[in-house]
């Protein structure tokens, strides 16, 4: 069986001023090749102006089983949103 090259995750900045966004993954022997493969695989139609690659094994992800413990506490804190507060219509610029 052939040993796979290292798995990298690919992030693209689609145009200047925007953040890098995850688009997919690929295998490469080293980081330089990962950038070159990312260019050929994910930017054939000018989808990016900048590429990040990161070894997949370096990504630490939250466990979906813990989603409730992590995200539930924010649900009832509606006072964190501006619409929670009632301001008379006559008051402007708030």
């Amino acid at each position: 069986m052939n040993e796979d090259w290292v798995l990298y995750e690919v992030f693209l900045r689609s145009r200047s001023g925007l953040e890098h966004k995850h688009v997919g993954s690929l295998h490469a022997a080293d980081a330089r090749m990962a950038i070159e493969h990312a260019r050929d695989t994910y930017t054939r139609r000018q989808e990016g102006v900048s590429i990040w690659v990161v070894r997949s094994s370096e990504i630490v992800a939250a466990d979906p089983e813990e989603a409730e413990a992590l995200f539930e506490p924010a649900r009832d804190k509606i006072y964190r949103h501006p619409t929670f507060y009632t301001i008379p219509d006559e008051v402007k610029n708030l």
Binding site: N2, W5, V6, R13, A29, D30, A31, R32, M33, I35, S50, I51, W52, V53
Partner: peptide, 22 residues
Amino acid sequence: VREAAAAYADKHGADAVAAPSG
């Protein structure tokens, strides 16, 4: 080609030739 690329990565360190992040 695959073997040469792997040998090159071994010799130079897989991340040594990374492009600077942008």
